[in-house]
Nucleic acid binder design. Sequence first.
DNA 1: ATCTTTTAATTAAACATTTTAAGGGGCCGC
DNA 2: GCGGCCCCTTAAAATGTTTAATTAAAAGAT
Lengths: 170, 170
Amino acid sequence: MGKKRKDGKKSKSKKKDQTEYTLVDLSPALTQAARSMRTVLSRNLFESGLYAGQDGVILSLAESDGMTAGALAQKLGVKAPTMTRTIGRMEAQGFLERKPDAEDARLTKVYLTPLGRDSVQAIEMAASACDRLATLEFSDKEIRNLVRLLKAIDANLQAEALPLEEPDEE
Amino acid sequence: MGKKRKDGKKSKSKKKDQTEYTLVDLSPALTQAARSMRTVLSRNLFESGLYAGQDGVILSLAESDGMTAGALAQKLGVKAPTMTRTIGRMEAQGFLERKPDAEDARLTKVYLTPLGRDSVQAIEMAASACDRLATLEFSDKEIRNLVRLLKAIDANLQAEALPLEEPDEE
DNA sequence: ATCTTTTAATTAAACATTTTAAGGGGCCGC
DNA sequence: GCGGCCCCTTAAAATGTTTAATTAAAAGAT
C-alpha cells in the first residue's frame, strides 16, 4: 500500500511508485477506448443491417454453430433474457434460426442462416477495418500484447464477477 | 467462413494475411474486457451511492473543478443531453452543483460539493482495486504499455468518429 | 411409476442509458 | 438592434439490460 495523494490533481512526478496512478488510469482508459470502438464499429456494421452486440452472436456461431442460448449468453457475458431478446430480434432479421435439440427438449440450439453466414465476412471486415484504424501506428507485437492483456483482464475480472458456486466442504 | 480457428493460437502460421486474424480479435477482446470491468467497477461503486458513468464526472471535476457541461460531455464521450441528465441526477444526489458562469451566461459550470469531493477517494479506491484485480499478474511495464495503447486507440478512433468539419468544398 | 427437484428458455415488468430532435436564451458580428 | 451561432435543456424514443415469474423437460428419489 503506497502513499496516496488524492488531494487535487495527480502529481506529475516521475517516480517508480507512480504505478498506482497508472493503475487508476486503466479503467477510464479501457472504458473510453471501448466506447469509441463501439461507436465506430456500430457505424461500420450498420450497413449490414446489424446492430452492435449482434456481431458477437454471429461470430460465436460462426465458430461453433448450434450453440444453445444459454451458452451464448454466458460466452458473451449477458443474462439469459438478454440473449433471448437478441436472438429473437436476429431471428426476425433472418440472420439465424432456432431449433429444439433432438436429445434434450429443454435446449434451444441456434444456427446461422445463409444470410447470417454471409454476414460473417461483413462483420469480420468491419471489425478488421475498425481495429486497423484503432491501431494505426501500432506494431504487430504491440497489437498481440494488447489482445493478450485484454483477454487476461477479462479472465481476471470474470473470475471475480462470477458467483462461483464453491462447495465449501462436503 | 468455413475454417474455425478458435484455438487462439493464431501465431502458428506465419503468413502475411495473418495480421487480419489478430486484428479481428481486438474489438471483441476490448469489448469483453470493458464489459467485465464495468460490471466489477459498478459493484464496487454502488456502496458509495454512485452508478457507473458518474465516476468519470467526479474524477474529471476533481482534476479541474468548474468544467462546463459541454466540456464534460466531450471529455467523457457522450452527447450533451446525456450529460445534462447525468449532472441532474448527481446534483439531486448531492455530489455536485451547477452554477451559471459569471462572464458568459450561456455556460453552466459544474462544481463538486463536499460530498462529491469526499467520493473522489472512494472512486479512486474502487477503481484502483478493480484495476489491480484486472491486472493481477501483470508487470508494471505491461500495465503502462496497456494504458498507453488504450489511450492511443481512443485517440485514433475519436479522430475518425468526430464529424471533423472540413469544408473541403461543397 | 409418481413425485420432487433441478435445469433451460422464455415472458413480463421495470429501469438505466443513450440518442435525435426541438426549444430557449445569451453572445457577437454586422 | 438583428440574425446567426453556441450552449444547455427538455421531450420523445430506441436500445440494452436486469430481476422475477412462468413453462417445459430431464434427473433423481421414494
